[in-house]
Each structure stands twice: as C-alpha cells, then as structure tokens.
Amino acid sequence: MIKQLSQRLLGPVTLLLLALTFWLGLWVTPPDKVQGNLARLLYLHPAVAWVALYVSFGTATIASALYLWKRSRSLVMDRVAHCAMEVSTVFILLTLITGSIWGRPTWGVWWAWDARLTSTAILGVFTVAYLALRRANDDAELRARRSAVFAIIAAINVPIVHFSVDWWKTLHQGATVFTQDGNLLVHGIMLWTLFISLVAFTLLFFWLLRARYRLDVLRGERDQASLEEALVQRRREGVH
C-alpha cells in the first residue's frame, strides 16, 4: 500500500519540487552581489552534477558490486546498474552543458582545460563506453559480468572529479556551500533554493530510473514473447 502510494506520488512530487526550484531560482531569490543574475544557474548546475556524479553513478556502482558478489548476484542488479548508468550519461551531459553556459560569460570561453571539466568529460566517456560494452555482448550473463567490472573500475574516476578542484589549482571554484571548517557560505532563501533543487533532482533521478527499469523489463518480455512466437512458427513449418 505504502509502496504503491510512494510510486504514484514520486512523479507529481518531483514535478512540484522542480517547479518550486525554478520559481524560487528565477523570481524569488535575489541576484548575486558579484555575479548578478548569472548566479541563478547555480540552483541548477550543482544539483545536476550531484545526481550525475554521486547519485546515479553511485547507484550503478553499488548495483554492479552487488551483482559481482555471489550472494546477491541477480540480473535485477545488472538491470538497475544499466538503467542508472544511462541516466548518469544524460546528467553528465547536462552538467557539462550547464557548466559551459555558466563558463562562457564568466571565463570568456565555452570550454576551458580545467581539471574539473576535463575529468567530468572523461567520466562521461566512461559512461558511453559502458553502454557500448553492453551493446557488444549478446549473452546476458557475460554482458552483466563485464559491465559490472567496468562500472567498478570507472567509479575510481568519481573521487578524482570530486577532489580535482583541491588537487589542481584551476578555474573551477572549490567548495561553495560550506567552508573547509564546515561553516555555511550560503544563507537564507538562497540556501533553501539550493537544498530544494538537490532534493528535486535526486527525486527526478529515481523517477527516471524507475521508468527506465520498467521499460527494460517490458522490452525483455517483448523479446522473449517474439522468440517464443518464432519458435512456435518454426515448429509449425516443421510439421507441415
């Protein structure tokens, strides 16, 4: 009952929070003292990056590790990892696009050879490579095994992306919300908008993941049904 209700509410709540984020971000919050209206993009970019790097990539990695662990090995885990990685690819692309839109007026260029940007782009190529690897293997078990190993290796890149702004002194700013001592740098309505956007995009990820998973299940059932139909047809041809 609760599960059904939460599944039904997930979509509307996500849409509501997304609408709230856009309303707060575009109309209610004041412009930034230094960056002006450009700072409004920061209610979008960090949330998208949060989902791309940690939520979706993390889900794919955990599901892959669970697949490789013999006690929890099941194709359900493989399917979750695949769907999460697909969503991650979209969010990484969105991260790069929103970052570029912010970068053009701030840095003067759409793309800079910045450590954060470059490592994020490399992570994006990893996700595309993961999808290519899946398409190259027809056998479900083999595909699941190879993809799981690849996802775990690719996950090494996530801490590199995260700490890149500390390890290399480049253009991308460091921690924005908290100082290194843990004190808040953003306050009031700006902080709330940032927080709501994080929740909204996290829920959006789970909504998309669920939809993609259902699609994958339906596609699997359709393939199985057409295979069985083809077999029946072949048998009939044999009888005649």
């Binding site: 290519a132 690897l133 190259a136």
Partner: peptide, 21 residues
C-alpha cells in the same frame, strides 16, 4: 573486458582511452 580478442576491435579504444587519459 573488450572480449579477449574475440570482441569487436573498435570496442577496446572506447573502453580503455578514458582510463588511459
């Protein structure tokens, strides 16, 4: 990962280049 010499030859560069970067 790319199929141990039996997979498509184009797969290896896609998989390995991001890791080689």
């Amino acid at each position: 990962l790319s199929g141990g010499g039996q997979g498509p030859a184009t797969l290896l560069p896609v998989l390995s280049l991001p890791a080689f970067a």
